[in-house]
């Protein structure tokens, strides 16, 4: 490896992703192509000493793996898109046991042309290809990206936003206009999307919320209508500071049971 100045480097792999690299250490490049430390002025440049293509690919792959021990999908997507023809991308994927199929290729193309906020979200939340697959169903994924100016969800919420939004766009492209207005209040977005995607269940849940409001409030217990997978039910919470509190709760639970059984149209079977 020799030290080369910025002027001799190719920074085409640079992106907005906030990949950490210490300021005091020169960046790293291969044949002048910068891999990491894009902000630096000096670079440790690797130039293969062998004519053997296989061996050279192995060296590059080992170097890449040492710099990116767990690359995110978005990092691989950028690499796939912007790499030079000599860069052994397939070898790197293979060494990571990553199967780069036409699906990954198609997803990487979508991701590379996605807004930076979305790319950063994929990077920070370590979002992988499986989470992004819904986007493949859109004829033009950019219409999804056009709906938001910021994408700052948790990984789980963000993945659900993608899945539900794509589903609703596929049903009706006009939904996009609606989606844009929903993105204006991100905290309300996911519940709104769930409601739109599952109107029957949402209606059922509303009815149940109304029914529960008819039950006299208990100061001892907190009750809420809850969905767990394919089942719905009541979550009842109470706090006990002394074993004797349990008697009070037993009494309150009995009263609750009577109230619930009296409610008309209950889904449970009364024997």
């Amino acid at each position: 490896m020799k030290l080369i100045p910025e002027s001799q480097c190719d920074k085409s792999l640079a992106s907005s992703l906030k990949t950490f690299w210490p300021k005091q250490v020169p960046g790293v490049s291969i044949n002048g192509l910068v891999l990491i430390g894009f902000e630096q002025e000096l670079f440790f440049d690797h130039q293969s000493s062998t004519q053997d293509i296989e061996l050279a690919a192995q060296e590059i792959s080992e170097l890449y793996q040492s710099l990116y021990p767990q690359p995110t999908f978005v990092e691989l997507a950028i690499l796939a898109k912007k790499r030079k023809p000599w860069f052994p991308f397939e070898r790197i994927c293979s060494d990571f046991h990553f199967n780069w199929t036409p699906t990954e290729q198609a997803l990487s193309e979508i991701l590379v042309s996605a807004p930076q906020t979305f790319q950063n979200w994929c990077f920070e939340r370590k979002v992988f290809q499986g989470d992004l697959k819904p986007l493949l169903l859109l004829k033009d994924p950019q219409i999804f990206f056009s709906a938001f100016s910021d994408f700052s969800f948790s990984k789980s919420d963000g993945c659900q936003v993608i899945e539900l939004s794509v589903d609703l766009i596929l049903r009706d492209e006009k939904f996009l206009v609606h989606l844009k207005s929903l993105f204006e209040k991100p905290s309300d977005l996911l519940p709104a999307l769930r409601k739109l995607k599952n109107p029957l269940s949402a209606k059922q849940d509303e009815i149940w919320d109304q029914k529960l409001s008819l039950i006299p409030n208990s100061s001892l217990q907190k009750i809420r209508w809850l969905r767990q997978g394919d089942q719905k039910g009541l979550e009842i919470r109470f706090f006990v500071s002394h074993p004797k509190d349990l008697s009070k709760h037993r009494q309150a639970l009995q009263e609750l049971e009577t109230s619930l059984l009296d409610l008309k149209g209950t889904p449970w079977k009364i024997n």
């Binding site: 269940s201 059922q204 997978g229 394919d230 719905k232």
Partner: peptide, 14 residues
């Protein structure tokens, strides 16, 4: 409207 069930498959509401 499908939901994850205990067997891991997506199913209608129980």
């Amino acid at each position: 409207e499908m939901w994850p069930s205990t067997s891991g498959k997506l199913r209608y509401d129980q």
